[in-house]
Each structure stands twice: as structure tokens, then as C-alpha cells.
Design a protein around this nucleic acid. Structure first.
Lengths: 262, 262
DNA sequence: TGACAATTTAACTATAATAGTAATCAGATG
DNA sequence: CATCTGATTACTATTATAGTTAAATTGTCA
């Protein structure tokens, strides 16, 4: 360092980036896979992995050398999640709705125009799509994203729409800015968003925005997801419009008030 | 470094130790509190906190300077937990039993003779005690610990008992090694443990060991916790003995097979 | 409002930690 | 058994960090 400005530990960054590689889709990794993914050389990778193993966050299979998160990671995980106690309550609310209605539910926040999935539960015995942890370029083609966009002020929305790439994921994806803008106005008025096979063929979703309890600013969204095999879009609207609005309202009240990160 | 042996990053250790400070009881900290707790000087503390803030794991209130885990921490937390998918299933099993019976349940693994709490849910409208995340010297005075001890071989048990400090937490705590050993034999035979106000006055618990699905080795325990105001010890035994044994069996089947950490 | 105390941030180097090369080792594969 | 791939260790030049000192910021109280 020694540069006046940068109080930043690269070692910590790299170590954390290793921990952050693991998730449900990737529960196990090898040292070389980690090195390749993060662009680190083998020695450094070895050092950080070894540190994490020594500390007990990862465990390494003595034979196969496979690396996976261990007990302490789970403890860290639960603690971090519970440190933000609201998540526990969010979970409860979502779980209850999920249980009582057997609906697939997604909950995400928006960070730098990316959808960061916070919680997801799947209905039993149905096909569902799992949004990745962090999804970019999905504000225009998901119920979550559209609900969020519709929560913005007309001014912010216009600006955002102008700069957003409208990636076409399916034939249904709205790629025309004017048409999207019109739909978002409708979304704002009725207070819920719909997504009809715009992200993935066969996937229907209804969503509503989560808002900061103090400022009222949109911070994320919640959605119920269905397969075309289950229900039609009109059915979903009549049946779930009230519920999604209520859910979003309840969850918004549980959110932590926004902090200014300095 | 440069010492042949030590492939270990202290920076990573320190940074993680900061993240690990946060939990439900401590959702917010100040820089000075962190520095004091970890024995770091203010500059280093500042650097690591700043790193974590820059990376998005922590957020700092611009005014009060309070530090708390942020969104990304929650994502990291959920990912780490889900990387070990079994936890999800453990959660579901425990939650179901909790819901259907309104029982307080604790689930812990044993690491270096400490109980590491993995999951806890509380019955509604009852008094309960929350075990700390990592509890030492509690093998002899908790249902969890006694269930675990009873899962050891006679040989291991004898050795362990000899070296274990039998800290007296209440008047009921068993501090006599012979008496404890006898009780553990009983525990092994009936396949569940009891703890009658030995950890805390008024706290009753019934527990059973969790075993590795391959080796059969005891790795932790699950317990149902009650208040003396609710039920008596004999009542608990007759009512919950079968249920705790079943629960332990079900959960054991969900556990990840043990890995040799090299 | 100003002075004091507590906390946070910044500048600055000696020192300790790390990156990266190269060499070695351990298993897997044919 | 030879060959290959991936993991581990040894070894330093380079760089990041610890920790001291000082400055800035904020809150408190008169």
C-alpha cells in the first residue's frame, strides 16, 4: 500500500473470494479449479486454501484433495444471516406462504442493477427455474426486475431504461424500450408485475417490489413462480395479485432501514 | 513466512475473525469494539474493516460509524450453508418436528470437545435457554453432550472422562466421574440422554446422538429442551424417548459422510 | 460557542508476509 | 513402468502490513 488512499487487504479479498465460490451448485472444488477461476497461481491458492482449512472453514479430502466448506462455514453462515435478524423473519414469512400455498417463491435485492437472490423456495412436484445468485441483465425480463423497475420514479426509470441492454432471452422478451416503459407504467399502477415466458419458455411469474421502510425507495422484489403447465397468466393474476401485494408489503416492513455505506 | 512449514495467511485469518464476530446477539459493532475484542490495533482494524466494506460484506453507517454485515454477507452465508446441502434437509426435518410439536430443538456437532450449535429453534410461549454458538466444557452437563459421550466406545469414553473438567454449573451438575460414567452407560443402553437442571436451573432436556452414516461414529447430537414449568423429567422420558431416537436416526442419515481433513 | 475526549482516518517506514518461479512429490492413467 | 497432471514445498525479490505518530472528525458538556 503506502498509497494514502488504499486501505485494503488483498489477501483478505482473495481468501474471501475462495469462500465465495461455494454454493449449492458448486459444493466441491479442487485447488486447480479455484486457481483457474480466480486467476491465482497454485502457490497462492494453496496458501489461502491451507489457511481456510487450518481455520476450519474448509475441509480437504485427504485422498481426492477435494475441497468443501465445513462445519465452521455453516456456523459463520448462520451467524452472518442471523446478525441481520430481519432475514430470519423474512424466511419465516416466505416459508409460511410457501407452505400454505405450495408456491415457488423468489426474493431478491437489487444491487448495481443486478438481482441478488436472497431466498428461494420451491413448490413441490413442479418444474421451476432457479435464478442464479447474482443475475445481471434480468431487470427487464423477470417479474422481480420489472417490479423493481416499476418502483423507481419516472425520472430514474427513464434514465435507467435508456442505458439498460434489453437482452432477448426468449421470443417473448420485451426488447422495445417504449413497450417496456408502457408495461412498467401499468405495473406501477396495479402494483404487481407479470412475466410471461420472457426469461424462459414455460416460466410464468408474478412479482411486487420491496421498499425501504423509511424512504419508500424500491430495494428489491419478491415473486411467485409458476409453470405454464400449472396455471395460465390470467389465472395467476386473478388468484395471486392480492397475495403478492400483501406479501411485498409485509416483507418490506421487515427490511432493515437503509444504511449509507459511509 | 519463508519458514518451510507455514503456508498460512494471517491477513485472511484476521479479516475472517472480524466477520465471525457478528451474530444474532451482536449484529452491530464499532471499529474500536472490534479492535479491542480481537486485540488488533486501530489501523489494522481500519484496514480490514475497510476491505470488507469495499468488498460489500460489511456496511458502515456514515454517521454513527456502526458496522454491520450487509447483503453480500447474507449471500455468502446462504451459499455456504447451501453448499452443504444436507443442512437444508436437516433444517426441514427439524423445522417439521418443531412445528408439529412446538418443541425447542437444538442441534450441535462436537468439534474438539466443544459443542458447535448448528441449528436451534424455539417453542413459542415458553422459556428457553439458548446455547452459545460454540460451548466448551458442556459435554457432561447437557443432553447434547451426554448423548455424544454415550456414543463413544467404552475405551474412548474412559479416556475422555479422565481428562475432562467437570465444571459444576448448578447443584445438579454431575461432577463425580464414576457417577457420570454410570449414567452414560445407562444413556448408551436406552439410546437417549437426559439432562435435569444440570446446566441451568429449570432447564430439562432429552437428547440423542447423531452418527456418521458410514462409520457410525458419534459426531454430534440433537436435543429437545423444556422448562420445568412445562413438564417433569419422567413425563418427558415417556413422551419423547421414541421421538428423539427417531429424530436422531433420521438426521444421521442426512449427514454428510465424514471427510478426513487430510 | 468553544474546549475536551473519544474515535476515526491518514502518513509513514521497518519489518514481516506474499507472489511467483522452479523444483519436488504423489497419484492417476495408459 | 513411463508419463502426465495436480498438489506441495523451497526459496527470495517484491510488496503489503503493523504499528507508531499525527491529524481530522465527531460528540459532549459547560
Amino acid at each position: 500500500m503506502s498509497k494514502g488512499k488504499f486501505y485494503f487487504s488483498k489477501s483478505l479479498e482473495k481468501g474471501l473470494s475462495i469462500l465465495a465460490l461455494f454454493n449449492r451448485e458448486t459444493p466441491v472444488l479442487t485447488q486447480s479449479a479455484i486457481a483457474k477461476t480466480l486467476g491465482l497461481n497454485m502457490t497462492s491458492t494453496y496458501r489461502y486454501i491451507n489457511t481456510l482449512v487450518e481455520l476450519g472453514y474448509l475441509e480437504k479430502n485427504g485422498k481426492t484433495k477435494e475441497i468443501r466448506p465445513s462445519l465452521l462455514s455453516i456456523v459463520l453462515g448462520t451467524n452472518l444471516m442471523r446478525a441481520t435478524d430481519h432475514l430470519e423473519m423474512i424466511r419465516e414469512v416466505v416459508d409460511r406462504i410457501h407452505r400454505e400455498n405450495n408456491i415457488s417463491i423468489d426474493l431478491a435485492f437489487v444491487v448495481n442493477d443486478a438481482l441478488v437472490r436472497i431466498y428461494h423456495c420451491e413448490a413441490e412436484e413442479t418444474l421451476t427455474y432457479r435464478l442464479p445468485d447474482v443475475a445481471r441483465n434480468c431487470l427487464h425480463n423477470t417479474a422481480l426486475g420489472k417490479a423493481y423497475l416499476a418502483s423507481l420514479s419516472e425520472e430514474q426509470l427513464t434514465e435507467k431504461l435508456a442505458s439498460m441492454p434489453l437482452v432477448a432471452r426468449t421470443a417473448q422478451t420485451i426488447t422495445d424500450r417504449e413497450r417496456l416503459h408502457a408495461e412498467l407504467r401499468l405495473t406501477r399502477d396495479r402494483q404487481f408485475s407479470m412475466c410471461v415466458e420472457e426469461l424462459l419458455p414455460g416460466l410464468l411469474a408474478i412479482g411486487a417490489a420491496l421498499r425501504d421502510s423509511v424512504s419508500g425507495r424500491g430495494v428489491g422484489a419478491v415473486s411467485f413462480d409458476f409453470s405454464v403447465l400449472q396455471q395460465s397468466a390470467p389465472e395467476i393474476m386473478t388468484r395471486y395479485a392480492d397475495m403478492i401485494r400483501d406479501t411485498a408489503r409485509t416483507l418490506s416492513a421487515l427490511l432493515p432501514p437503509e444504511q449509507n455505506t459511509r
